[in-house]
Each structure stands twice: as C-alpha cells, then as structure tokens.
C-alpha cells in the first residue's frame, strides 16, 4: 500500500474521531436524538464527567477535557506529520517520555491534590502530539513494504 494512502487514511480516521466528539453536542442541541449513540460509544472509553468536559452549543463534548486534548492534538500531530518527521527521532522520544511523565503526575495529582484545566490541556496535548509521530510512523512502516525493507536494511537483516 502506498505511503500516501496509509497517511491519508489515518488522517481521515483521526478527523472522523475528533469530529464526532463535537458532533454529539451539536446533535443534542438540535434535538435530533442520534447523539445518544455517539455519547454511548465514547462512554465506554471516557468518564464524560460534566465538570471535566468542554461545552459547545450548550452541551458537553462526547469526551472529557483530557481525552479531547489528546485526540485533537493527535489529529494536529497527524496533519503536521510530514514536518514533524524531519525532527530527530531521539528528540521526539525524549518529548514522549516527558509528556508521559507529565500526564501521569497530572493524573495522580488530580485525584490526590488538585487539578486545573490548563494542566489537563497541556499534558493531554503534549502526549497526543508526541505520540502521533510514533503511531503514524509505525503504521506507515508496518503496511508499507518498501519501508519495511528499508527498516530491515537499516538494522542489517
């Protein structure tokens, strides 16, 4: 499969995922009734607490603030993947380590001590952005034969 097709498929899926998070409150605000399915889908992977959610059209997003930050920044990271891939992998790996450490601390402190919206957005966005490179790169490499051969050559197989 060509690299471009794989990349744009990931981009499209990521867009649909993010779009449905905003679509749910819109459908609820317009009383269409179909919002229930989107809210139910995301309820299996997110707590959806009203006090921890963003609001639009007077209704809460389908995912909480942290999840929304991760998904949206993942989408942004996917959009800018062609630019991000020019950065050295080692630097991105360090960023990923830092973002994981930051989100773990923020998550734990949220339950033990305090949490504010800025720390949630920053830690979530950092993780989504950093992980997007490795996920997109990994999927492209896994499905693209020429890339696999290149990877194999690099490691001397």
């Amino acid at each position: 499969m060509s690299k471009k097709i794989i990349y744009f498929s990931i981009l499209l899926l990521s867009f649909i995922w993010c779009f449905s998070i905003i679509l749910a409150p819109y459908l609820k605000a317009t009383k269409s009734g179909y919002n229930i399915f989107i809210y139910f889908f995301f309820s299996r992977i997110c707590h959806q607490l009203p006090e921890r959610s963003f609001y639009i059209f007077g209704e809460k997003f389908a995912a909480c603030e942290r999840c929304t930050s991760i998904y949206f920044s993942f989408f942004v990271g996917t959009v800018f993947f062609p630019l991000i891939r020019k950065i050295k992998t080692e630097y991105l790996k360090i960023c990923l380590y830092i973002s994981i450490f930051f989100i773990v601390i923020d998550f734990l402190f949220g339950y033990i001590y305090f949490q504010n919206i800025y720390s949630i957005i920053i830690s979530g966005s950092a993780l989504g952005l950093c992980s997007s490179y490795f996920v997109v790169y990994g999927i492209i490499n896994s499905f693209n034969k020429s890339n696999q051969n290149l990877e194999a050559k690099k490691i001397g197989r």
Binding site: Y137, S142, E151
Partner: peptide, 11 residues
Amino acid sequence: EPPLESKHGLI
C-alpha cells in the same frame, strides 16, 4: 538478535 520493527509492535 535484530531489534524490533514497528510492525511487531502493531501486531
């Protein structure tokens, strides 16, 4: 042994 490839992680 040679290191892991991305496809291993995916699988």
